[in-house]
Design a protein around this nucleic acid. Structure first.
Lengths: 126, 126
DNA sequence: TATAATTTGCAAGTGACTTGCAAATTATAA
DNA sequence: TTATAATTTGCAAGTCACTTGCAAATTATA
């Protein structure tokens, strides 16, 4: 592991919620080139240390977010105000997805789910 | 309605499955500038005639897809081989989403769901 | 250590849009 | 129906989130 990769992994470990590539590029802008950050993310995901997903939000556009890899499949809520994520826990859609799969004869290998709205903290401030 | 907007809306109506902006730009490349196609899509969505969502697939990257607007919230399956969509029917996640919302005190205003894998036609050809 | 293999920074390139602006359409008024 | 006002279009350039080529700098292996 090189310094860049170690630092990127540490940043994501400490975040405890999904972090976008752009956030990491900003955080490390005085240490590493964006290309290095992106390459570190690819490397870490390829090595199974990170998971990622793409989410679109009106304010930040379409970005890829990274979390530490886990065997368990989780879903996230994204706050439209503060842009922080809330863990929605382990996936509870497996039965419904299996049912859809059966109904249409599909071989569903993965699914994407996320919820958006306002988190409790932001609601309090409204 | 101008000609461009009418033609874009017709193309989406005939497709009966989500169509990407890029597909429409290609279809109309000899008739309209891509900027016009994009502007027509914004106009039609703004006027409530279209709904859209963003989906990322390995082969086509991240693109916005458009369908005719409907009051009912539906979800789609995207085939990784032929890139066609299969309608998964009306949303069945409302109860689960409400439950997540309650558990975490979130004001969930929308959610995104899509499944990916191989459709029956592509599976037959494997 | 010396040498081989890998990674990094920089700059340029991509893909999916987005925007400024003048010309062409379309809508409204007379 | 035509004059005028408002909107839309095409073109070219710009933006944003990456991606890539290549030589220099690191890191790994002998």
């Amino acid at each position: 592991m090189t310094k860049a990769r170690t630092h990127v992994l540490e940043a994501i470990t400490q975040a405890k919620e999904p972090v976008s590539a752009r956030q990491l590029c900003e955080k490390f802008q005085s240490d590493y080139d964006p290309a290095t950050v992106y390459r570190a993310l690819h490397y870490l995901e390829e090595k199974g240390r990170l998971d990622s997903f793409i989410l679109h939000c009106a304010e930040h556009g379409t970005e890829r977010y990274y979390v530490l890899h886990s065997e368990e499949h989780r879903h996230w809520f994204h706050c439209e105000r503060c842009h922080r994520f809330t863990d929605l826990g382990l996936c509870r859609f497996d039965d419904l997805v299996a049912q859809m799969s059966l109904e249409k004869g599909l071989a569903i290998t993965s699914h994407t789910f996320y919820a958006t709205g306002i988190c409790p903290e932001c609601r309090r401030k409204m």
